[in-house]
Design a protein around this nucleic acid. Structure first.
Lengths: 145, 145
DNA sequence: ATAATTGCAAACACTTTGCACCTGT
DNA sequence: ACAGGTGCAAAGTGTTTGCAATTAT
């Protein structure tokens, strides 16, 4: 979580982008496009390098995209009491919304998995895909019609 | 789960490979290499196409790899009572072992997430990364030394 | 016979690298 | 001044595609 290094305009822009889009996960290409559209054109390599660095600093989470072809990034919230490294994330395959599983049940789950299955979860890079209620309802409708 | 289509030697070989390695997830390249080493050399395109088809037929699960750069495949178990599409999977980032979270707690989790968070999980393509006890112990030792 | 599948080669998408130049401290 | 960051161009992976030849049914 140390913030070594220089705060360049590019780094600032990338953090801006993630911050504006904090409610969803973005691919590197999404970030690139956003920067392009906001007069902050930045080189690919820089975007990749910066995202990488932000992840290793713990400021950003890196998830695999559901199709497995690229990584998705999201600003980590680090409020004491709601650290993104301490709860699971659900991502809706329909609308892209990310739900922070930030509730008492998490510690139960963690404890169960640790004690019964001998496994300690890494919340920082795990994500569960599925459908939120809205999108599930929509999918049903489509099927019906 | 229908099994339309021809059973070619290539398809058989790929299923063989997944079946022999059923306890871990394999990337397309892993499969390719395995086929190479077992006198069943098969073209890249065929491997990708076949894996794709197996996934859509429900015989194989596709997970994102932890680094997000490629997909991992694993034969789905479809025993009644232990269907891989109905429980979560944990993968150890250390040794690669996959743990099937096949226990009563799963329905609790599913129910909680549905009722409290309005989200229905897709077990077929979600995977949780972390460390199994053995690897966690090893990691600790390393740190200490 | 014929519909599905394969191999090949070329294309694509995403990410990383080396290096000379530029910038924040 | 100088460590650290950036852009560029080239290379590396992983994956997909079109098409003619081959194979399972």
């Amino acid at each position: 979580m140390r913030s070594e290094g220089y705060m360049t305009s590019q780094r600032k822009a990338i953090i801006d982008c993630l911050s504006v889009n904090e409610s969803s996960t973005l691919t590197a290409s999404d970030v690139l496009r956003w920067l392009d559209c906001h007069d902050k054109k930045t080189d690919r390599a820089t975007v990749y390098r910066t995202l990488e660095r932000l992840v290793s600093e713990g400021l950003v989470l890196r998830f695999p995209s559901s199709d497995g072809h690229s990584s998705c990034f999201q600003l980590a919230c680090a409020d004491p009491g709601s650290d993104c490294h301490e709860h699971l994330h659900l991502k809706c395959s329909g609308c892209g919304k990310v739900i922070h599983l930030d509730c008492e049940f998490m510690s139960e789950l963690e404890h169960h998995i640790q004690s019964k299955h001998g496994f300690s979860m890494n919340f920082g890079n795990s994500i569960i895909y599925g459908l939120c209620d809205d999108c599930a309802r929509l999918a049903l409708k489509k099927k019906g019609s």
